[in-house]
Design a protein around this nucleic acid. Structure first.
Lengths: 230, 230
DNA sequence: AAGAAACGAGAGCACCGCTCTTGACGAATG
DNA sequence: CATTCGTCAAGAGCGGTGCTCTCGTTTCTT
């Protein structure tokens, strides 16, 4: 219809962008708890109540930042993995893991917002879960491709029968893969984010120095757990 | 010296205990961010400033809760693991994992305080790291015992040479174990807490129902990764 | 041009952590 | 026994927060 929006709509979109930019910078320096609408307003030369014209509450601003964060990490892992030779499954897995880690280490507070303790009083709306699956989609396709190419070995540890119904939802991300592999992949997935949470949240402080190398080795071990030949 | 403290000291200790109890209950219901000194004081029928006679700041109260939390989870895993036959290493590993999970699921907010995003503005003092190692000590001893009994198999994935110096600090918890096993154990450790973080922080919501069974299977897979015969 | 919608500013509410002062109380000391 | 001294609860207050409401202005729509 109207390709050029009205002037008011343009300045409104611009202001929303500026608010989120400032909020993201505050989030990066202060953390989620230090994100204050009044501080954003102060930095914009506005009065605090004016912010509520654009974001009805602090939670809505947080939701926007969360969605942006999921998209950022998803895009990072998508781009990194796309540059790999398609038949080098271990390489694709390791590249994807390192892409997630690089992003997490570079944006610790945003990582905490996405994968850390839920912000008190905040409950994630449905919008966030749609953006959240970009990285797991990439990881799932690696598993799926590897299985279809015959590059995956099933572990000797068989999943119990009770889990048969449970695997269905997870298999959406890795079509055509048997249950055994689904659980191996899920375990690798949790291990990846377990490492990142430990590293980003400081649990390795004082005990582990060369985290890049150790992470690489750990993810190679998880590739083996997943069933990828070494 | 004086076995029976003065009356003043006794009532002071009692008040400190009451404050931490109320704070822990608030933590359990509201989360770390919802923990308020004023609310604790209100519940005690005190004025807020009086609390500062016993805890110089909100952070000091948090520190007490964190140390208590580490001790609680450490004691839970110690007790559960001690009841296992000493030569059933897979059983000891699984029991310890389930003990950590049971505690985490029962105390999600305390788990978040210990292993989730760091509380904004709070920096953990040295006191907390001493209490933190109780669970990893138990897990390390399982690995150590299993290795010394010849029950651990080294993975085909060799750690790179750069990690040689790094293994020293980690080996303190599992004496006599070669580097390959140290890294396998570290990977299993991160996988355990990665799962718990996903579960407690709600990342499994909607996709995984029978988490107990799935967790059990995942930790069996990690036992294999660690080198334990299935 | 007139009405409707959106907007910025300001005051205000209830809450927070934290500080400072004041007056009451109890215990050790002279 | 009387006094000094440390501990205590209470209150007022500071600067901060998210959020609401009102008011006068600006901008878009009809």
């Amino acid at each position: 219809m109207t390709a050029s929006r009205t002037a008011r709509e343009r300045v409104r979109a611009e202001l929303i962008r500026e608010i989120t930019d400032i909020a993201r910078r505050q989030l990066a320096t202060e953390g989620a708890g230090g994100l204050s609408l009044r501080a954003v307003a102060r930095e914009m030369g506005m009065v605090s109540s004016a912010i509520y014209r654009y974001f009805p509450s602090r939670d809505d601003l947080l939701t926007t930042l969360i969605i942006d964060g999921y998209n950022a990490v998803g895009e990072a892992v998508e781009r990194a993995e796309a540059a790999c030779p398609r038949d080098d499954f271990t390489g694709r897995w390791l590249t994807a893991c390192h892409a997630v880690r690089d992003w997490a280490v570079a944006h610790p507070h945003e990582y905490a917002l996405l994968y850390g303790s839920p912000v008190p009083g905040y409950h994630a709306p449905q919008d966030t879960i749609a953006a959240r699956i970009r990285d797991v989609t990439v990881l799932g396709r690696i598993v799926s491709d590897a299985w279809n190419a015959g590059a995956l070995r099933a572990s000797a540890v068989e999943p119990p029968a009770e889990l048969e119904a449970e695997a269905a939802g997870l298999r959406e991300h890795m079509p055509g893969v048997p249950d055994v592999i689904v659980w191996q992949a899920l375990t690798a997935w949790t291990s990846l984010y377990g490492w990142l949470s430990f590293e980003v949240f400081g649990q390795f402080n004082g005990t582990l120095e060369d985290r890049h190398t150790a992470f690489d080795h750990s993810m190679r071990l998880m590739a083996a757990t997943m069933g990828l030949a070494q």
